[in-house]
Design a protein around this nucleic acid. Structure first.
Length: 278
DNA sequence: AGCATCACCTGGCTGC
DNA sequence: TGCAGCCAGGTGATGC
């Protein structure tokens, strides 16, 4: 599932291919992808506009256009942004949005489970980012993440650590995979209540978050068995081979050889080594 | 305010 | 083999 490293990989691809390009056509073919406002509003907001920057906060992509409009794209679980040099090439099943660029190429949004979302907004801050991004916590790569900041963001929360790490208003960009990997690296159980964490543990979590997300970006993200995540050019990521605990239940811990556990936390699950993580 | 729960959705997997 | 049912999971709405 696309989390911060996967979305950053897509962002870099978009920046490389779409920067300074203009939209020449817009076709919304899916029912649900554009749902925050009437889907008919997407085309007039994009047509003729030039891409001035491609930014990201957490898992949200923000395509900044001339005139101050921002196109926001969220891949959610199964969304793929695919760059196609030949617009006559066949469209994949579940293609919900297709936009043409002034160099003759096409950007296609493919999303089998239709959780992904596109919307445009003119409500932007001084940096051109959508005002509603303000509710998101710091992005560990863009904004950095210190122990003090993380401790402050955890604040009065008294929930399972994994629930806090994946709460986008606490920290932006972490999902199920990287939460488990960060907890393992910090040697803290994902089901620990946040109000029991020591200063040292919060420090390890902040450092682990930055290091793991940065390394995962270098390796262009994680593609799981379903190979659902692909970058802008359709390539798979390779960080999955470095996963220490995620989806490794029953396999030996890469640090101590004990069996990796799949534990319940609230209504969801987490993977961890109950020998290494306290 | 903070927390738990649910809805949204479909492909792939499990188990009968 | 076929098929029903379950699971995955990010976000936003809802209710307590």
């Amino acid at each position: 599932m696309p989390e911060l490293p996967e979305v950053e990989t897509v962002r870099r691809g978009l920046e490389r291919r779409a920067l300074h390009r203009r939209f020449t056509s817009v076709a919304v073919t899916g029912r649900r992808t554009v749902r925050r406002h009437p889907s008919a509003e997407l085309s007039p907001a994009l047509l003729g506009r030039q891409v001035e920057a491609v930014r990201r906060k957490g898992k949200f992509l923000a395509v900044l256009l001339d005139g101050g409009t921002c196109l926001v794209i969220h891949l959610r679980m199964t969304g793929q942004l695919l760059w196609v040099d030949d617009p006559t090439s066949p469209r994949a099943a579940h293609t919900h949005v297709v936009v043409g660029l002034d160099d003759g190429s096409e950007l296609r949004f493919v999303d089998p489970r239709t959780f992904g979302e596109w919307y445009v907004t003119d409500a932007v801050d001084a940096e051109g980012l959508p005002s509603d991004f303000a509710r998101l916590g710091p992005d560990p790569i863009v904004d950095g993440l210190t122990a003090a900041t993380l401790a402050a963001r955890l604040g009065r929360h008294k929930v399972a650590l994994k629930a806090a790490l994946t709460d986008q208003t606490v920290v932006a960009g972490i999902g199920s995979i990287y939460a488990d990997e960060i907890c393992f690296a910090a040697r803290v159980r994902p089901d620990r209540r946040t109000d029991t964490l020591s200063r040292q543990e919060i420090g390890r979590l902040a450092r682990a978050a930055k290091a793991i997300l940065a390394r995962a970006i270098e390796l262009r993200g994680s593609s799981l068995r379903d190979e659902q995540y692909r970058d802008l050019m359709g390539e798979l990521g390779s960080f999955q081979s470095r996963h220490k605990v995620y989806d490794r239940a029953g396999l030996p811990c890469r640090r101590c050889r004990a069996s990796v556990s799949k534990i319940a936390f609230g209504a969801r699950v987490a993977y961890c080594c109950e020998s290494c993580q306290l």
